[in-house]
Design a protein around this nucleic acid. Structure first.
Length: 199
DNA sequence: CGGAAGATCCACT
DNA sequence: GTGGATCTTCCGA
């Protein structure tokens, strides 16, 4: 289990270090495990793409200002949930978005939660931030909880070698001006579950 | 108080 | 490749 101190570092360091780690989700006697293959760092106040940009606070993003090691779950586009880990190093409001994972356990339940009609192909179950939350049964009820909790936590996992890590600009933040091009997206190079466009 | 846009995904062409 | 679904928040009038 990764302790809160793991998250007391700059978001881009944590984002890179979360690659290969396991997300463990336990609910109703079920256990699901994903190996993280893609993340993005959001730096907080000075990052135009961050929900904390300019020190913004609202009921929606309140969890971004919790101590490091808490979750930040929010609703995007009115439909999909996204899971983040709150980090802290100086300015508050930084976090890491968990963008994609490889299924290691609990696949059958995930297929049902995802309402897939066919046999899942690479990326179908957890190859995107919204898919991860749907597959793991994560919604606003998991917003603001400690990521060392029984129901949701991260563990050591199998980190990739540094030469297996790719990085590039973040997805869906073209509006963020100068921050749009910052290379804060990290992925395991060539992994089939990384979301599009592939790094 | 209305309108626009968003850290997305899916069905359809 | 394109557009629709659907909710929260922000901004301008």
């Amino acid at each position: 289990m990764l302790a809160p101190a793991f998250y007391e570092r700059p978001a881009e360091v944590v984002a890179r270090d979360l690659l290969g780690r396991y997300v463990v989700r336990q609910a109703d006697g079920w256990q699901g495990v994903l190996r993280i293959v893609e993340t993005e760092a959001y730096l907080g106040v000075e990052d135009r793409a961050s929900h904390a940009w300019g020190g913004r606070r609202s009921r929606r993003n309140a969890s971004l200002y919790l101590p490091p090691g808490h979750s930040y779950v929010y609703l995007v586009y009115g439909i999909h949930h996204c899971l983040n880990a709150v980090t802290h190093h100086g300015e508050p409001g930084a976090a890491v978005l968990i963008r994609a994972g490889e299924v290691l356990a609990g696949e059958q339940q995930m297929i049902e939660r995802r309402r897939l009609k066919r046999v899942p192909k690479a990326g179908d179950l957890a190859g995107g931030p919204g898919k991860i939350c749907q597959a793991l049964g994560i919604d606003l009820r998991q917003d603001g909880i400690l990521l060392t909790s029984e129901e949701l936590h991260f563990t050591i996992g199998e980190p990739p070698r540094s030469d297996e890590i790719a990085r590039g600009p973040r997805i869906g933040v073209a509006y963020a001006k100068e921050a749009a091009g910052w290379p804060l997206r990290f992925a395991i190079r060539g992994h089939g579950d990384v979301s599009r466009p592939r790094l």
